[in-house]
Structure formats: structure tokens, C-alpha cells
Design a binder for these strands. Structure first.
Lengths: 147, 147
DNA sequence: AGTGAAAGTGATATACG
DNA sequence: CGTATATCACTTTCACT
């Protein structure tokens, strides 16, 4: 599928604020709301738009910190881990990566004890490395057109 | 601010689909749409809700891969980097972390050459480590109530 | 803090450039 | 692929509880 300039403008609006009305998007990009509606539908069908979500602040709801946890899986333990990780409420993001380290997870934790019990659950899968997140410098920045 | 069970149900709906109408949320959680509207406004004011966004697939719009790039900053170079990183279109997320490695970035790249030119920009700030993302196993999972 | 009703605005389907 | 119109749904405000 083709993404023209108008579609990029619509994607920009939606990335800025997913709850913006089609009418408001239309005003900003210079078309009517049915046109916006149809284009959004096509972007969804083409899976260019993969969903709409809300940022809920982990700190404001009582989690004390975030951490990045890196897992170097033991032989044969990567596959079971990939299934298991989906069930952890703590994990908000999980990437499989190249190299000796196989997995990086972004986790939300309520306190140090919680970190300990969480890491304890991982030891059967491999070796872990924990890095506490001090700040989220760039947060879910927009995906922009390729130059 | 207090987050009661009703607010958690509303947050669950919004995290699943930020574009869900207040009326639809109301039907699912058992209140009227003005009630939903008012609660959402309070959650926004309390900065529990920090925004609404749209997932645009980097691969579908022409980026060939993602990478995690770790930066171990040279003495005195962390602060200038923290300003500079906001200007990079490639960086969709950037975390400052504890330990010898100071920064982890999630970046979208159009090809190998792009990776090289991007890393070249970083060498003045510190040493880098690059891990190519093979898959995004858990994607922006919901933040859930603390048990 | 939530409901119900009124008025305004937005979404959707259809007909037509 | 877009607009224009009409109908229906949703949002917002407000009086009341």
C-alpha cells in the first residue's frame, strides 16, 4: 500500500492523539470527515495502523519504578520463555534480539521485593541483567515518513 | 488520586482501544457516557492518563528493521546527548538507566547503511552496542492494577 | 458522583462529481 | 478518491438526585 502525504498527515494527528475526531483531523489536513474515515479504515486494513492505545503512567498508579531486564537464555529455554513472558503482568514490552543476550524486557515493579521475586521467576530460563530506568527520555515518539 | 475498580475498567478499555467511544465504554462498564466522560477527564487531569496514541507499523511504512542501541557515555557527554536524542527521528524510545551503560534506545532503521550512519552520529557521545530486534514479543502491554 | 434529557457535534451510508 | 446530504449515534451541558 501507498502512503501519500495526506495519509502521513492523518497518521501524525492520530499518533499525537488517537482520540482526535475524524472531523477534527479533517479540518487539520483539509478534507471532509468521510474522507478521513475511509483513509483510516484502509490504513487499518493494510495493518499500517496496528491499534490505538492509552498511556497510563505506571508511577501514578502505584508502581515505584521501571527496569530493563536482559535475559541470556539457557540452552533450550528460549522457546518456553517466549510463551511464559506473555503471562507476566510486569512486562510491558519484550524484544527478542540478536547476540548472546536473547531478550530485553521493560518491566514495571512496585518495590525492591517485587523486583527480587520477579527475577527469581526468571532464573530457570537463563541469566539476567537488571538495569533500573532512571527516566524515559523519549517516549513512544512518532513513526515518521522515510526521507 | 484514588483509582477505584470502575476507573480500572475504563483504563482497560482505553488501553485496548483508545478510540473507543465514551458511550461504548459506558455500556461495557455499566455507567452512562457522561459519567465515563467525567472520569476520563479526571484521570487526564491527574496525569494518570498521559495521552492516546496510534501504533504505526515501522515495517509496513518502509523501515526494514528495529534495533536496541546502548550507549555508554563519555565523561561529560551524557547531558549533551540527552538534548540531542530528542532530535533523532530514528529514536522511538529512549531510557536512561543505572549502571555503566547509561542509555538504551529503540530505533527504527531503513537499511544497514542507515544503521551505520546513525551509529556514526553517536560516536562522539560514547561507546555503543547494537542489538537488532528480531521480534517484538510483548507489545505495549496494558498497565494493570497492583495486586 | 451518577442519571436523564436537550442541544450541538460527529459518524456513516448513499448518491453523485 | 473526493464531496454533499441525510440519518443516526455520540458528546456535552445542565437540572436533579
Amino acid at each position: 500500500m501507498m502512503i501519500d502525504e495526506l495519509n502521513w498527515k492523518i497518521l501524525k494527528c492520530l499518533q499525537e492523539n488517537a482520540r482526535m475526531s475524524n472531523a477534527e483531523i479533517g479540518r487539520r489536513v483539509g478534507v471532509t470527515s468521510p474522507a478521513v474515515s475511509e483513509r483510516i479504515k484502509k490504513l487499518e486494513d493494510a495493518e499500517i495502523i496496528q491499534g490505538y492505545t492509552t498511556f497510563v503512567s505506571p508511577l501514578e498508579v502505584g508502581y515505584q519504578f521501571k527496569a530493563l531486564i536482559t535475559l541470556s537464555a539457557f540452552m533450550g529455554m528460549l522457546k518456553p520463555f517466549l510463551e511464559k513472558v506473555k503471562t507476566y503482568d510486569e512486562v510491558v514490552n519484550c524484544y527478542r534480539i540478536t547476540g548472546n543476550e536473547n531478550i530485553v524486557m521493560e518491566v514495571v515493579l512496585k518495590n525492591q521485593r517485587h523486583l527480587q521475586t520477579f527475577i527469581d521467576q526468571l532464573i530457570i530460563f537463563g541469566e539476567t541483567k537488571t538495569q533500573i530506568v532512571l527516566s524515559h527520555v523519549v517516549k513512544y515518539s512518532e513513526v515518521k515518513p522515510i526521507k
